[in-house]
Amino acid sequence: MKKAETMTVSTFAAAKGRHAPARGLVTFRSSALQVILLSVVLLAATFLGREHSYVMNIVAYTFLFAGLATAWNIIGGFGGQFSLMHAVFFAIGGYTAMNLFKLGVNPWIALVPAMALAAGFAVIVSWPLFRLRGKFFGIATLAVAEMMLVLANYFKGLTGGSQGMSVPLKPGLQNMIFLDRFHYALLMLGYATVVLLIAAYVYRSRLGYFLQAVRDEQDAARSVGISITKVKLTGMALSAALTAAGGVLFAMYLRFVDPPTLLSITDIGVRFLLIALIGGIGTLFGPLIGALLIVPLEFTLRAYLADVVPGSHLIVLGGSLILCALFLKRGVVGLALDLMNRRKEASHG
């Protein structure tokens, strides 16, 4: 390694006319391949448990939240904008699906307006908020989420108010309604896979590198011609659209939504961030790993601890979050990457 530090005239000469390979750059292809492989493994694992309805419920939630946290990570992780308003995009998806279902539009088609609405809303709301930096941005997004929770209760025509909305059990693929939870698990796995592929593409593209540059050093980003606001808005819109798609799926899984289910700060809004944080913010697979660890753990804790000491599962989760924030800044995946790098460095001498 030391050798590389002293620059020689010969390196200048060598640079001329040589076809430089893209060392130090991970391609989308290799990331996409990893996503596909992981999905196949998860698919096989899902098949193994298909008989157990209780397990399939946990699996469906795990994959859904893997996709949602991965969507959050596009702006939250790559772009470093700690949004706490993603529950709003999620709710836009849920309510759009429910309302359109009543009008006879199936949820597959509802995905399109749901994603467009969420992206549009995200751009309009984020525009002024992006003037704020760091924790102030986070606090402002939290305020937006709180406000939307109040509004959702108020606008009964669109949301059913606190009574909520439900759709009848009309099973069928076109209705996205299944009797077997195994099918929902597959649907959610499909969602997580698509979101991961999109995130992988973004991560290894111009937008992804610009988002990371904006996160790392705004002045440096601007000095190479990057429009900070445009990049952040693009990342936010994409992230919001993918979150809304998850909201559509979630609504069709529950077939019932009310403001707390879709807009709860602790159960929804903070959860995306929490999963990404524990798995590894800003890494491609962090949110997936985080969901695989957290969601089943949470179900188990709730099942066993909630009867003994009510709310104790939240204490355990909160505790693990604090531990992660203190000791694993880049989450489980970040730790794994660091260990791998250290081994590589060691083997290179």
Binding site: G24, Y209, Q212, D216, S223, V224
Partner: peptide, 15 residues
């Protein structure tokens, strides 16, 4: 103003 979490190549890439 190094983009510290990105690789050396990625730093030049954004330019």
């Amino acid at each position: 103003k190094t983009l510290t979490s990105m690789t050396t190549l990625e730093n030049a890439l954004v330019g």
